[in-house]
Design a protein around this nucleic acid. Structure first.
Lengths: 188, 188
DNA sequence: CAATCTATTTGACATATGTCACAAAAACTA
DNA sequence: TAGTTTTTGTGACATATGTCAAATAGATTG
């Protein structure tokens, strides 16, 4: 992916970013492709990058009694990091690729420095934080419902999930057992 | 509460705020006392203020099939708003006082304008957003556990909750029925 | 393509939790 | 304080969900 493609990516994401801002931003970025199964961020470790998915898919999870609990999935054009990473603290989640994927990667320190010197990048990080919080609130709302409704609402809102996420991961995300998910699906 | 008490409140909250910044900030604030039961923010409506609790307690909830589902509680020195309110959108939660309470109130537009003109207020709003996101992630983590553990971890982390929150609200927050909470409590 | 491995489905069963009804306790109110 | 309302606790029961084991389907590899 060329530098001008990186700029086009951010321009599509936030049309308000001026050409000079896109120059500054893309200077801090690099591009990388990684195979399915790679861990982008690991539970318990500090990381220094924020990622934007240009192709592929990831899941975020943490371990509870040795069992993976999925907290979310992300796909093309979505921003991927953990808030703890953003805050400079060790992550409490692992982010792993569930497909061969490609990312634009930004160093968080450089990103924050830019945000302080360039007001529209400041606006971008502010908006990313607000969107992340809204996303988390929607997750909480979803998770407050009974399992059956959780599945149906989710599939209604994002039918493409079923094509790209294993039912095992989906069940753990929904907070129900694989078997229960299978039964919910066979009845509807 | 006098203007200098308001300044002292923010100074205690963020020691990095300079006297001149505290002046600017406190100019946008007012102070108000409200009785138990008052709704600070209502589901479906747009609101224009962010609150800081100086005394008292609130709960946030939304309705599902006519039933209240508590999403969080907040107490002295905590910041109270909804992220949707912050984003200028109608709130999807109602925030109601569960004790007679007192607040410092800031107009969100003025707060955001200050954040753009004064870099340390910008830092403050940025930090508030990050803390809110971390708070939501911890809630999600808590809610991914079985009901019994949710209760025990919560009471372990915040024993004072039991003194200030009704068991009905606590059960709805934990996502279990009142009766189940009562049984969990009587066994432990 | 056969062989192997992984993911998903199904059955049987135990258990946790919700619901409803009612009792007891506590908090308000006049 | 007595009466009323609200909150909390208990019992009985139905049901949803988890767990374990095994079968089936699907994917991957040589």
């Amino acid at each position: 992916m060329t530098r001008s493609e990186i700029k086009a990516f951010f321009k599509a994401m936030r049309p308000y970013l001026a050409p000079s801002t896109l120059d500054e931003l893309s200077d801090c970025c690099d591009y990388l492709k990684l195979p399915k199964g790679t861990a982008l961020i690991q539970e318990g470790k500090r990381h220094h990058y924020c990622y934007f998915i240009t192709k592929g898919a990831v899941k975020s999870y943490y371990l509870n009694d040795g069992k993976e609990i999925c907290s979310w999935f992300a796909f093309e054009r979505e921003t991927v990091s953990t808030i703890k990473t953003f805050a400079g603290q060790p992550s409490n989640e692992t982010i792993k690729l569930i497909e061969d994927s490609a990312f634009i990667r930004v160093n968080i320190k450089a990103f924050k420095a830019l945000a302080e010197s360039n007001i529209s990048i400041g606006r971008l990080t502010h908006e990313l934080l607000i969107e992340h919080a809204i996303f988390l609130e929607e997750l909480l709302y979803l998770k407050s419902k009974p399992g059956k409704e959780r599945y149906q609402e989710l599939i209604n809102a994002e039918p493409q999930l079923l094509q790209r996420v294993s039912l095992t991961d989906l069940a753990s995300f929904l907070g129900i057992s694989r078997e229960t998910l299978s039964r919910i699906r066979s009845k509807s």
